[in-house]
Simulated scan of single mutants.
Amino acid sequence: MTDSELTTIGFDADDTLWQNEQFYRFTEREFAALLSDHGDHDTVTARLLEAERRNLGLYGFGIKGFTLSMIETAIEVTDNAVPAEVIGRILAIGRELLAHPVETLPGAAEVLSELSGRFKLVLVTKGDLFDQERKLAQSGLGELFQAVEIVSDKKPSTYESVFRRHGDGAARSMMVGNSLRSDVIPAIEAGAWGIYVPHDLTWSLEHAEAPLHAPRFREIARLAELPALLDALGHPS
């Protein structure tokens, strides 16, 4: 095995293997409607985004933190006068988010099935532990992974650790995902390949400039293109 031979591929979950952001967008619209007497949609959702940004270090990523940020925003925009029934509805729509059915993205199962016999596949996702475990179980994709890592954040050190534990180090690994900020850039900084698969909806806090000049950066339009990319890079097996 050469130093550059690819042995391990990490996959993001939300909006890479299954739909996720669209459910948040639906929830944001209902949340803004609940508070329409205190601001238009753009104003309310901008305040919500500010709260989410402030709270990431406290609550982390996921629906529970998002729900708490909605409650905080409701209190702020109403000057501490938010009715109890509005708080109750916010809690209810947070629970609905935690129970939404899993909708896998086109090509996800086929690509994972094709690659599972050729490479070590590792799911690397961040968010609420229970929610991510639920979605993985409902997706039917769990048996295709050799390992699953649900992490609090994705940094270069995260990928160094994950690919050392479950592979042959970052240099022989690849990370595939829809977030430049979380899936691609830190994986490249760790020494791995970073493959960007854009999604129509990506949370604004996950946006970043594409590392176009990084030798190990590639972009594909859809997940189904990954096997052909691997072949083109000289990693057929």
Rank of each mutant, 00 (worst) to 15 (best):
A232I: 00
G94A: 04
F61K: 12
A13S: 12
T45H: 00
K154L: 03
Q146C: 13
N55K: 00
Y159H: 07
E114F: 15
R95T: 04
T27I: 05
A13N: 11
T27M: 04
Y159D: 09
E209M: 09
F31D: 08
E72R: 05
Y24N: 04
T158V: 06
S4I: 06
P186D: 07
P227T: 10
R222P: 00
G140D: 06
L97F: 14
A210D: 10
V82D: 11
G62L: 04
T67E: 13
I75E: 11
R47F: 03
V77R: 00
M175R: 13
S152A: 15
L141F: 09
L136Y: 11
G39K: 11
I195T: 09
I150H: 02
A192K: 06
Q19E: 15
Q22W: 11
V44L: 04
E160W: 01
W203Y: 15
V77T: 03
L205P: 06
L123R: 09
E28V: 08
L48M: 09
G169R: 03
S204P: 08
D200Q: 14
L115K: 06
S173I: 07
V176L: 05
M1T: 12
V124P: 01
K155N: 00
D231M: 13
S116E: 09
D42R: 09
T43K: 14
T125R: 12
W203H: 15
V176N: 01
R54N: 05
S4Y: 05
F145P: 09
D183G: 05
L230W: 06
G167V: 03
A187H: 02
V197Y: 01
I75F: 10
Y24K: 10
I220Q: 12
E114K: 15
R222Q: 13
P156M: 14
A221P: 00
L144Q: 11
A228Y: 01
V111N: 10
A224P: 01
A192W: 03
I87S: 02
V111P: 04
R118A: 14
I63K: 01
N55Y: 11
G107H: 14
F163S: 02
A190H: 02
A13K: 07
T45F: 00
I188S: 02
V148R: 02
A51I: 00
D3N: 04
L144Y: 02
G107I: 14
L233N: 00
A13R: 11
S237T: 05
P156F: 15
V176P: 04
A46I: 00
S113E: 14
D40Y: 12
L144M: 14
D37I: 03
E219K: 15
